[in-house]
């Protein structure tokens, strides 16, 4: 008999505790300092998609919220946003801007970010940004903005290597309430797309199907689920 799972999924919180550091111990330490209000009030993180930038920004928001700080997170890749969304944000204790590369070359956005940077500085607010590239190479048209975004430390987030991805699968499965043994994890890593987002989506799928079928996710189970090999 097939077990019917409820179509309920609590969003997995993105915290510092469940961030797999991999080779990113230094950016993580810098972020903890920034959250604690120590060091430079402005910090930049950069790295290719899937290296954990959004996770860290969300985690920083959660930490600051727990400390009763006023803050906002903005992904500049979000559809429907306009520069007006940045008005008055300098009154907040902290602003976290994700996907900053998205607005490069758009004069109204660049001027808005430039003004926000200056105002946050005037108000003593803290700024955290994330982009796919370091600020110096994002390609801003407004030199004033680029130079300001270069004034703080910028850290490269390295993508997870096989060891890190293995940790991600193990912890991700645990967080979903099931276990994946070494063989199962190795099986997934040698056959599936190796970016964290795809692997986490796959874990959701494994979770749902293994629950519905009442089966433990072993290699034969995964082999059947993935149809042998999935590119």
């Amino acid at each position: 008999m097939q077990q019917l799972g409820l179509a309920l999924r609590l969003p997995q919180p993105q915290t510092l505790a469940n961030f797999i550091p991999g080779r990113n111990a230094e950016p993580l330490a810098a972020l903890r300092q920034w959250i604690a209000g120590a060091g430079a009030p402005y910090l930049a993180l950069h790295g290719e998609p899937g290296c954990g930038k959004t996770h860290l920004l969300q985690a920083a928001c959660a930490q600051l919220q727990a400390r009763a700080r006023s803050l906002v997170y903005l992904s500049l890749a979000q559809a429907g946003l306009a520069p007006a969304v940045c008005e008055g944000l300098e009154v907040l204790d902290a602003v976290a801007l994700d996907d900053v590369q998205e607005i490069a070359g758009q004069a109204p956005w660049e001027q808005t970010l430039f003004a926000l940077f200056n105002r946050l500085q005037e108000h003593g607010g803290r700024l955290l940004i994330a982009a796919t590239r370091p600020p110096a190479t994002i390609g801003f048209q407004l030199a004033d903005l680029q130079s300001r975004l270069c004034s703080g430390p910028s850290f490269l987030l390295q993508p997870l290597n096989d060891l890190g991805l293995d940790d991600l699968l193990e912890q991700g499965a645990q967080a979903r309430g099931f276990a994946l043994d070494v063989a199962a994890r190795r099986y997934l890593l040698s056959r599936c797309p190796r970016d964290p987002a795809s692997l986490l989506r796959l874990l959701d799928e494994i979770d749902a199907v293994s629950l519905a079928q009442g089966r433990i996710p072993t290699v034969p189970f995964l082999s059947a689920l993935l149809g042998g090999c999935r590119a």
């Binding site: 928001c61 006023s70 803050l71 997170y73 306009a82 940045c86 944000l89 907040l92």
Partner: peptide
């Protein structure tokens, strides 16, 4: 974190006032 976190609230008897940092939000 984008839309709810920056709001501030103040309650005055049966009224709840929610303050957004700008018109867009």
């Amino acid at each position: 974190n984008t839309w709810i976190l920056p709001l501030q609230a103040s309650r005055e008897s049966s009224q709840l006032r929610l303050f957004a940092p700008n018109r867009f939000v």
